[in-house]
């Protein structure tokens, strides 16, 4: 149960970072567009279709992980490795999950993609008729499109980057000594305990499948709801 909890904490932080950056980007977009006139800029709008075809800007965890460890230890004097001693509390582990989640957030391309995706979604949705109607009624554009843009951006980016997130999860856990499923798989592989490897790998695949399934269901639900938005 403990490995699953650690992995779930990393996934949780990662998702939180995606949402937080989406909100921050949305805030920046709405401020920039409010000052650029009624139509705003259409760059994001035209960029949206091009964005879909763009490949993910992924980076290796092997590149970012050592850099994060060296930077934190050498300059800030902070050890980012997990506190896996006997007295480590759940809260310690929860805080320690931030570093691998941050590295995975950048490495899986989620950080870069959520930035562009939110911008493109904001400019796409603010030109819709229901937003124009809402504006005519005195409701601000930002409050009208906030939920739509956030839901669309977070779901699109999460679904697109999920395979790369899980691809690099073992490395991130092994590098930061996070006692999650990935580390268990690695330990099993090192000691040639193939039953352990298969069990934990299956658990990771089930977790991935569950995340992907949930994301797809939500995506479809939101898609159906948004069909009515013109």
């Amino acid at each position: 149960m403990a490995p699953l909890l650690t992995t779930a904490m990393i996934i949780g932080w990662w998702l939180l970072m995606v949402v937080a950056l989406a909100i921050f980007r949305f805030f920046l977009c709405s401020r920039a567009s409010d000052s650029s006139g009624p139509l705003g800029n259409l760059e994001g709008y035209s960029a949206h279709s091009a964005l879909k075809a763009k490949p993910l800007p992924i980076l290796p965890v092997l590149l970012l992980g050592p850099l994060a460890l060296m930077f934190a230890f050498g300059i800030l004097g902070v050890n980012l490795l997990f506190p896996v001693h006997m007295t480590a509390t759940l809260l310690d582990l929860w805080f320690a999950s931030i570093a691998p989640a941050l590295v995975l957030f950048i490495a899986s391309g989620a950080a870069s993609r959520i930035w562009t995706e939110t911008d493109a979604n904001y400019h796409t949705w603010r030109e819709r008729r229901f937003v124009v109607v809402a504006r005519a009624m005195g409701i601000s554009v930002s409050s009208t499109v906030f939920r739509v843009v956030l839901q669309k951006s977070v779901l699109n980016v999460s679904l697109a980057t999920l395979p790369w997130f899980f691809s690099e999860l073992i490395i991130a856990e092994a590098m930061f000594n996070a006692p999650g499923i990935g580390l268990r798989i690695w330990d099993g592989a090192k000691s040639r305990m193939f039953a352990d490897v298969v069990t934990n790998l299956s658990l990771l695949v089930i977790l991935y499948g569950l995340c992907a399934f949930l994301g797809t269901v939500l995506h479809r639900k939101i898609g159906q709801r948004l069909e009515g938005y013109t």
Binding site: I58, L59, P60, V61, L62, W164, S167, E168, I170, I171, A174, W186, A189, K190
Partner: peptide, 16 residues
């Protein structure tokens, strides 16, 4: 090409 390098480096780091 980039993804291939990421995968190869990761697996080699894990001891395979």
């Amino acid at each position: 090409l980039r993804a291939g390098i990421v995968i190869e480096a990761s697996v080699s780091w894990l001891g395979y």
